Simulated scan of single mutants.
Amino acid sequence: MIEIQYSNKIQISNLTLINSPSWFVHPTYSSDVLIHGLTILAPIDSPNTDGIDPDSCTNTRIEDCFVVSGDDCIAVKSGWDQYGIKFGMPTRHLIIRRLTCISPDSATIALGSEMSGGIQDVRAEDITAINTQSGIRIKTAIGRVAYVKDIYVRRMTLTTMKWVFWMSGSYNQHPDTNFDPKAFPEIKGINYRDIVATNVTGAARLEGIAQDHFTGICISNVTISLSKTPKELQWNCTNIAGVTSNVTPEPCHLLPKKEKVDCAFPEDRLPIEDVHLKTCCTTKTA
């Protein structure tokens, strides 16, 4: 519905967007992007109706948005397989604040699966999700290369979820057959803290890649209350490594407990935080 490319100093604010045929808001190859106060509405059974997809963008702030979607409410991207590798433009320095999401079949915030230019330094806080498939989902696969790293999430309130945490290393959708089957992505430095989730089917589905484990995962101060029909295996973990602290239900053995750990959240300010909204208007004259 709205796609902006190769631009800087972009402001998209105070709009209601309804029934896009595909992604709603897609800033691409851009910098200094401010997205504020959007209401995005799509049928919950409509595929590919992502809400906001920052793609190969630097210095982006998304805040105070309400998204109802049949796909990911926010999907962070940076190019697909060999095409994203060749272009080589990461998404980095991204802030997401005060997002409310409803999406029964997809994620509140997805990282990938198109992440072949890299995703780094994403800071998400004060997130609310209702009747949504997952909280934060990392989607990648062999052939992507690049990285998803330095991800920081805190203060999430989640109600009626399939999975609170989900990482997929086998998201094997490719634009063609020319991807490199030996190209492994790097997933590390993933930090989640201060999360309350209720009516949850499964706590976590964390699936790294056998030849390429996801590392540096930290989860702290998380309380998950289960639904009436929860999954028997609450923490489904393979090919990952990290730590947990003050997390219930008890995590898998690949995320051992450590006392008094608060997972990291940066204290420095990004330049986009000091950019202020401007209200513009026009006046008709006779």
Score class of each variant (00 low, 15 high):
N172E: 13
P104M: 05
G70W: 13
A124L: 01
T108Y: 05
W23V: 07
R98D: 13
D32C: 01
D121E: 12
S69P: 07
N131Q: 14
M1F: 08
S106K: 13
S13Y: 13
Q5L: 12
C280W: 15
W166H: 15
N236F: 06
L34K: 13
T160G: 08
D72A: 10
N221L: 03
N239G: 01
R137K: 15
C57F: 06
M1Y: 09
S116D: 04
N172F: 03
I224K: 02
G79C: 02
I4P: 01
A124P: 03
P230G: 02
P27S: 08
F24I: 04
N221F: 04
L270K: 08
L111H: 11
S13D: 10
M115H: 09
D262H: 07
E267L: 08
I219M: 09
P271A: 11
W235K: 00
S170C: 04
Q234M: 00
S113N: 11
R155C: 03
L94V: 10
C281Q: 15
P251C: 01
T16M: 08
K258R: 14
P181H: 10
N131F: 13
N131L: 12
I44Q: 13
T49D: 09
P271C: 09
I272S: 09
T177F: 08
V196Q: 11
W80R: 06
V247G: 03
T140M: 12
W80P: 00
K284T: 14
S20G: 15
T238Q: 13
G202K: 11
P251H: 06
T223I: 02
G51Q: 09
P251V: 00
R137C: 08
P230S: 03
D274R: 15
S245N: 05
F66R: 13
D126A: 07
P90Y: 12
Q234D: 01
I190L: 08
M89R: 14
E259T: 06
C280H: 15
I102T: 09
V33M: 02
E232N: 06
R98V: 01
N246D: 10
I272N: 08
S30Y: 10
N239I: 00
P230W: 02
T28Y: 14
A286L: 15
I62D: 09
F179E: 11
V243L: 10
I138A: 10
M167C: 01
R123P: 01
D53H: 04
T285G: 08
C237P: 00
W235P: 00
G79F: 04
G84P: 01
I44L: 12
G37Y: 06
M115L: 09
N172R: 12
I2L: 14
L255K: 07
S225W: 01
I142E: 14
Q82S: 05
V196C: 00
Q173C: 01
L34S: 05
N239W: 15
R97Q: 14
Q82M: 05
